[in-house]
Structure formats: structure tokens, C-alpha cells
Nucleic acid binder design. Structure first.
Lengths: 258, 258
DNA sequence: CGTCGAATTGACCGCGATCAAGGAAGGTGG
DNA sequence: CCACCTTCCTTGATCGCGGTCAATTCGACG
């Protein structure tokens, strides 16, 4: 691997869409992180370099629009650090579809279909994102069978995650959704007694399909179940207590079953 | 193509799961219908036969459980005629996730991941379903690059359909969902003045995320917009009138954008 | 004609949204 | 360092969408 050669480009497109672009001819650090993704790990060095040749990194501040629903898909996105919100609009309403954390890919389906985005995306924190041209992904799909399999696996995982989201929305009340979310976050944090929400409450509310006001009240409703809130820190006294209410289910909540 | 050789098998597994199996060494009629699917159309005759060798057809009465969520995925399912409901359960609640019509595949994602089903499925009408062993699909994926591409395309379509469902649920009221559903059905029927619902109202209600009672009232609320109901027949006087309420959007309602 | 499930209708209630006001936290400039 | 602003969060009051329960009607089928 060669040493990183960085080029800095200011695109004056718009205030909301200014981009700090860094063309990488594969930086060592970046590559390791991207390579470790299931999607790319099957590629040999030569092919991985080939795929990264047309790719570039964006180093972005918070609240930058990455993509807008309705636009044509050009790049597969890979989130390396920071966090990204996927959201959608209709009739002056907006809803959070998902909040992504590293390391994950997004808009793979639109890339494959070469169709318009169904969702918009923006950074929530300072983030580092790799963009791989759609045609390169497509070409590699035909060239490397292992990569084809990795792509279809990745997509199947995303699909199943979405099915879980739909089940969550249709089968549970907002209080139950919150309770299960907290249990899932707790597990993610390593079953510690307290953990950070890691996301603004209003976005959490939207991603759970509720209003900020309702979320606030829902937190209080969870007090009898041993849930305490201190700013963005959540303390769960006894998880089994909360599980009685939440009734977590593998086929809705278990991320490894995606 | 050889003439169909049919074998009739009665599996006495359970009352709810009795199966009328017909092993097909490729019937002409069936094959044409399956071949015409985007998923299989890229395969040459030899490979298509190979894929169908281990497959068999089920000829099923209404209300037969096909798969149960949580079970391990064994077969890719293809609906040839009739209709199939995908549904999910949690905590004694049940919800309709989708109603499928010919010709379409289902549980492709579970097949690929070789994971447990996230949804259950049952026939709604007398239906004809082809089952292709998961390992055969998997083998053909590696063998035929065109098939691999067809699989990933099919999956991307399903993924995007699901994103649309989520947007529909989170961004619209139940009345708006119904209005848009009616407009979509009308278009599907060829923009005729009246059309059949083609599904029990209670299932329609569930698939729209509402109760049967609420659906009943929603229909009446649509009366001022020129919507009349006669049994399972819907008459829309002036679609543009209804569109004023529904505000249909490409990125939620347009099936071709999947 | 009788039966059973589905659909409708009515009465009621609760979840969650909306509107409005009041804090708390963090950032900026004097 | 503090006054001020902005933004998010919280809390209260109220409203309406949609769910629940119950009774009735409708319709398919034997």
C-alpha cells in the first residue's frame, strides 16, 4: 500500500452541500478500516486497490447533507467514523429512518438498482465517509464472485433489518419500542449499568416513530421499571425488570439475526 | 423440455401444514411461467433445468401455513397463482406485512442468509407455489454470474419496497394510507372507474396498519372525495379529487421505482 | 333456513399529537 | 466573566386519531 496522497477540493455547489473532498490513493489507515468490512474482506489486494482507485474520502462537519431523496444514485457510501442519519420527507413531514454508526455501508440498494434514492442522508457528527463510484461496484460484482456474494449478503442483512423495523412499528406501542431500544443499547454498551444515548432525543423520538414530547413522557413512564435519565445518560437498575415490559424478541431486536 | 411427470405426496405432518406436493421434472406450463420471472430469465435452458431439478410445486387450498417465523430457511418460494399473505406475530398481536400476487418470489433474503424466517406466510386463495431448495439457489449464484445479478436486483427491489412501506407508515395518517392504496390499486387495475379490492378488508386494514373498525370509518370519510364502496368493489368517481387528499409520491407509492 | 365469520355501527377511552410556555445547556460577544 | 441568544428538552393543557368493546347487520355457504 502506498502512502496517502491527499488532495483538498472545495466544491462551492451550495451552502448545505459544501464538501471537503480528499482523494485517496489508498491511505494505509483508511484502507485497513474499509477492508475489515465484510463487504470488502473477500477481495484480494489487487482488486481492493482497483475498487478504491476511483473512491474518495469526505471529511465532514456535522449536519451536512450527503444525499437527497429523489436524486440519482452515483456512489456507494461507507461510514468510517462519526454518525449519519437516514431520513425521509413527505408533505412537509420528516422522519428518521435510521442512524448509522461505523463501520457500515449505506444506499447499497439504490447503487445496485441505479435508481433514485428513497432516503436522504446527513452527518450528525464530524464524520469520515468513503464514496465508491456505483459503476466500480457494479464492475467488481461481475469480476469477483466472492464480492458478489458479499454484496448480496450485505443487502440481505439490510433488508432483514428493515423488516424488523416494520414489525417493531406495527406490533408495539411507542413505550414498548422505547423500552426495547434501551435494552438493545444497553447490550451494545456491554451490559453496563449506565450508558450514553449517543443521539439527540428528538432524533431518537423520530426514529422510534414518536414526538419529542411523547418521548419525554415515555421516559418518565419507565421510571417504575428502574429506568433513570440524567441528560443523555441512561441508568437501568434492573434490566430484567424492564424486560418484563419490553418483552424483547429475537426476531425483532436481535441485530445478529439480521 | 420434457413432459411433466407428476408425483402426488400426502405429508401427514399436521392439520395446518398438510401439503399437496407435486414433484415436477419441469412441466412445460409451469416452467414458462417461472422462466418469465426476472429472477430466472437470464439462465440458459440447461442451468434452468438444473435449478428446477430439485424444485417441486405445491398446489394448495386457502389458509394453509407455508412458513412460520423463527423456522430455518430451506426453500426459495415462488408464487405462480393465487395469493399469499406474509405476516408477523409478537406478544399475541399479528400484523400483515404484505400480500403477494403472482408472479413473485418470497423469503429470498432468508434464503441467502440461510437464517431464520422473520415472517410467516400463508395462502389466502387456492395457490400454486414452487419451492426451490436454498442450496440450489446458492450454488447457481456462484455458477451463473447473470443469475447472481438477477438475485441481487430482486433483493434490492424487495428492500426498496420495504423502505417505502416504512415511509408510508411513519409519514402518513391511516386515512392518507388508505387513499393512496386505493389510487395505487386503481392504477394497477388499469385506471378503470371501479375495481375489486381483491383482499379481505380486515387484512387490508392490518396491512395498512389499522383496525377493521377504523378502516370501515376511513372508507366513509373518503365519501366526500368521491369514493364509494360496494362490497369488495371500489368506485372512484374522480381520482384527481382523491389525489388532493392522498398526495401520492413517487418515492413512496411508485412500484416501478422499487 | 340456520350458522358462522366478516363487516359495520355506536359508545367510549386512551395513546399520542399539538400547542404553548417554561427551563437547562452550550455558544457567542461585549 | 457575565449577559444574551439559540436550541433542545421538559412540562402542562387540550384535542383528535385511532383502538377497544359490544351489539347489530350482512353475506357466504351448507
Amino acid at each position: 500500500m502506498s502512502i496517502a496522497r491527499l488532495t483538498f477540493v472545495w466544491s462551492a455547489a451550495s451552502n448545505f452541500n459544501r464538501r471537503y473532498r480528499m482523494v485517496i490513493h489508498t491511505s494505509d489507515f483508511e484502507s485497513e478500516e474499509i477492508r475489515s468490512l465484510a463487504l470488502f474482506s473477500s477481495l484480494d489486494d489487487a482488486r481492493f486497490s482497483m475498487l478504491m482507485r476511483g473512491a474518495y474520502v469526505q471529511n465532514l462537519p456535522p449536519m451536512i447533507d450527503l444525499i437527497t431523496e429523489g436524486d440519482k444514485s452515483d456512489f456507494l457510501h461507507v461510514l468510517i467514523s462519526g454518525s449519519v442519519e437516514l431520513f425521509a420527507n413527505w408533505n412537509d413531514h420528516e422522519t428518521t429512518m435510521a442512524v448509522l454508526r461505523p463501520t457500515s455501508t449505506f444506499i447499497l440498494a439504490a447503487t445496485i438498482r441505479q435508481a433514485r434514492y428513497l432516503m436522504s442522508a446527513r452527518t450528525l457528527e464530524k464524520s469520515r465517509i468513503v464514496l465508491v463510484p456505483s459503476e466500480d461496484v457494479s464492475a467488481m460484482f461481475d469480476l469477483a464472485p466472492d464480492f458478489a456474494r458479499a454484496v448480496v449478503t450485505e443487502l440481505a442483512i439490510c433488508y432483514r433489518a428493515n423488516i424488523m423495523t416494520t414489525k417493531n412499528l406495527k406490533l408495539r406501542s411507542s413505550l414498548e419500542r422505547l423500552a426495547n431500544h434501551l435494552l438493545a443499547e444497553r447490550k451494545l454498551a456491554g451490559d453496563t449499568q449506565s450508558f450514553e444515548l449517543g443521539i439527540e432525543k428528538r432524533r431518537l423520538a423520530s426514529s422510534l416513530g414518536m414526538t419529542p414530547e411523547n418521548l419525554s413522557r415515555a421516559f418518565r413512564q419507565l421510571k417504575p421499571y428502574g429506568v433513570a435519565i440524567d441528560g443523555s445518560r441512561v441508568i437501568i437498575a434492573d434490566p430484567s425488570d424492564l424486560e418484563g415490559l419490553a418483552k424483547p424478541a429475537d426476531l425483532i431486536d436481535e441485530p445478529c439475526l439480521k
